[in-house]
Design a protein around this nucleic acid. Structure first.
Lengths: 191, 191
DNA sequence: CACAAGTCGAACAGTTATGTTCAACTTAGG
DNA sequence: CCTAAGTTGAACATAACTGTTCGACTTGTG
């Protein structure tokens, strides 16, 4: 299953990885960057870039999928199903707030260039985990049930992003972020 | 002070207004729209657009200034200095959550095209009002003082935006938004 | 009504991006 | 070491957008 028809040289494999790394970094800090800029950042010729990714759209999709998969691993590490819902939520905030921000910048771009429908389908799985956790909390009676669950998810998501942005702009220290998030979100979500 | 050197015809005045209206709408829903698209939306020739606004940048600045001024009026209407801080906050949420979101979309664009420094200077005044309100609440003892005030401002700002976006995507009904915001923000901000 | 102010489309120049093709070069790997 | 896989820059064809200029036309205003 690993190698399909034509064997890929180790060479090419390395370049593909370099391109994806560069594309993530470049897209994140300057969304409207050109393919030329990405190739340059990857230390690769523009033609090589097109050899592996037929178009800007294909490249963006690849970066998106890879990044979402990484986020999935981090969320899995938080083991949201274990312990009380509040404890699991605390673990989620501690481990994932920084990664989710990088997602969000990429998502802004993907939403513009791929459309919001295609985007939702791709990262739905990740958001579903958070929604599942909150639903469990509601059943345990520790998370408020007077508001739509989709709104609670939005609250968590948007404050995670906001914290990361405040860190970026220097208004909030990175070490404080998790504490601040916990102090803000728990009173907002508890019943 | 009103008319400087050359008198402007009523004709031109009308078109300028139409252009600003169209530019706001078009920029908001499709940030990278072309000058041609804006002219079309304004029902005006492309040349006329350039006659009034020498460049894309000048137009964007004009739209930004006009929109921020409108936001200033709405915030002034909420009379944040009157009543208790919590009451004033409630008024703010009721009256301004939708308008503030349009700002944010425009700000995203302005941040990309004008740079974040120039943007901050222009809308600082508006954000300062909210910060002032929260500071008053802290002095009255009704708003928590264990978190940096800049973070509290961020919390209000980002949840206002999130609510507007959930309404846009159909996940939240517009009539419910103010109630939901109040129910989420007050527990998060109170001491 | 007469003239200046304003509008308009067409056409132009300059820039920047996307993809593609080609022919030469380098490298991995059996 | 030999060859297929991969890389590369240069060059090319489109396309889109930004501003500008021009000459003709329309409309406000005194």
């Amino acid at each position: 299953m690993a190698t399909t028809q034509t064997r890929r040289r180790a060479d090419a494999e390395r370049n593909i990885a370099a391109i994806l790394d560069a594309a993530l970094a470049v897209f994140t800090e300057e969304p409207q960057s050109s393919m030329a800029a990405i190739a340059r950042a990857a230390g690769v010729g523009r033609v090589t870039l097109y050899a592996h990714f037929a178009s800007r759209e294909v490249l963006l999709e690849a970066v998106l999928d890879r990044t979402i998969a990484e986020a999935g691993v981090i969320i899995a590490e938080a083991e949201l199903a274990k312990g009380s819902a509040v404890e699991a939520l605390r673990r989620l905030l501690r481990t994932s707030w920084h990664v989710l921000d990088q997602h969000r910048k990429l998502f802004d771009l993907a939403q513009r260039e791929l459309g919001s429908v295609q985007l939702r389908q791709r990262h739905r799985e990740v958001v579903d985990h958070v929604e599942g956790l909150l639903a469990r909390g509601q059943q345990e009676g520790v998370i408020r049930a007077d508001l739509p669950i989709s709104w609670l998810v939005t609250t968590v998501y948007s404050l995670l992003h906001a914290a990361a942005e405040d860190v970026n702009s220097g208004q909030l220290k990175a070490e404080e972020a998790a504490d601040v998030l916990e102090a803000t979100l728990l009173p907002a979500l508890r019943s």
